[in-house]
């Protein structure tokens, strides 16, 4: 298949399945709270509904950053789709993509001039501490497998078994990272928390909000895809689907049970878990 067609197909699949997974997360959270909850396609419907609503650019906003930052968000996660399902490329680029995602959270918040966005902007700066687990995950995978390439990691797991079984603490750190990107009521997602209305997304409304939600669906799909590929290995499409549903449901469970944390406590919890994970993983590899 043509490379461009493959990229387009994967982006579309990422968007649809990511949205359905978010809907599933809401359903799981609702059922835990003993209420029926919205239908699973609700997140997809919200995204499309916002997409066709009017957006205005506030007079106080920093143009063109206010609009272009949403483009940058989608561009980096299309890059993640290219690295992931399409080319099985270098994993270290994921680190750069996460860094730029933090920048997007920062700038989307501050570019509108609204106080809620500004709070999210500042939280994005010190929640970059949560990227520490990612760098540790990459290094530990490198120490274990000798490669930072997705194709190499898949080949290693075909030969030696799933990494989930040999370096489980690293998988735990990656799950902490995924939780910090999960959309609904995550304990670690302080930039999008409900105590600051909608964080950096507050002042992007209408079409721009629908656009950001599309990018976030692709983000979620890619995060869970990378988790499954790096820690379980190359799976069939049905395997990926089942794995994604399980991971999303577990994270929905975690989100439903944990409280919304004070930003400092949230970051400290992530760093502590990262520290335990790093020391434990290195101990398990070398001792």
């Amino acid at each position: 298949m043509n490379l461009m067609a493959e990229i387009l197909l994967n982006v579309l699949i990422a968007f649809f399945i990511g949205s359905l997974l978010f809907g599933l997360q809401r359903k799981v959270m609702a059922r835990i709270q003993m209420r029926p909850g919205p239908p699973i396609i609700q997140h997809l419907l919200h995204t499309l509904k916002f997409f066709i609503k009017e957006t205005v650019f506030p007079k106080t906003a920093a143009m063109p950053f206010y609009v272009v930052i949403t483009l940058i968000l989608m561009a980096i996660w299309v890059a993640a789709v290219i690295i992931g399902p399409v080319t099985h490329g270098p994993l270290l680029l994921l680190f750069a993509i996460f860094a730029i995602h933090k920048i997007v959270e920062h700038n989307a918040g501050s570019s509108s001039g609204s106080p809620y966005g500004k709070l999210s902007c500042v939280r994005a700066v010190f929640s970059a501490a949560a990227e520490l687990p990612l760098f540790a995950v990459l290094i530990i995978i490198y120490l274990k497998t000798g490669t930072m390439d997705l194709a190499g990691i898949i080949a290693y797991q075909d030969a030696h078994g799933a990494l989930l079984l040999s370096i489980p603490l690293t998988a735990l750190m990656f799950i902490v990272l995924i939780i910090s990107k999960s959309y609904y009521f995550s304990p670690f997602n302080i930039t999008l928390a409900k105590d600051i209305i909608s964080g950096f997304e507050t002042e992007h409304f209408g079409t721009l909000r629908g656009f950001i939600m599309m990018s976030e669906s692709i983000t979620w799909y890619m995060l869970v895809w990378i988790f499954l590929t790096v820690f379980i290995g190359g799976l069939s499409p049905i395997g990926y689907l089942i794995g994604m549903v399980i991971v999303t449901a577990v994270i929905g469970l975690i989100n439903a049970i944990t409280p919304i944390l004070n930003p400092n406590h949230s970051v400290m919890a992530e760093v502590t878990l990262a520290f335990i994970g790093i020391v434990g993983s290195i101990a398990m590899i070398y001792i």
């Binding site: 461009m4 990229i7 387009l8 982006v11 997409f51 066709i52 957006t55 609009v67 949403t70 483009l71 940058i72 989608m74 561009a75 299309v78 890059a79 290219i82 079409t207 721009l208 629908g210 656009f211 599309m214």
Partner: peptide, 14 residues
């Protein structure tokens, strides 16, 4: 794909 996929979606929205 990095430049024109986001631009196409956003301009379609606008």
């Amino acid at each position: 794909s990095l430049v024109f996929i986001p631009l196409s979606v956003l301009s379609l929205g606008l």
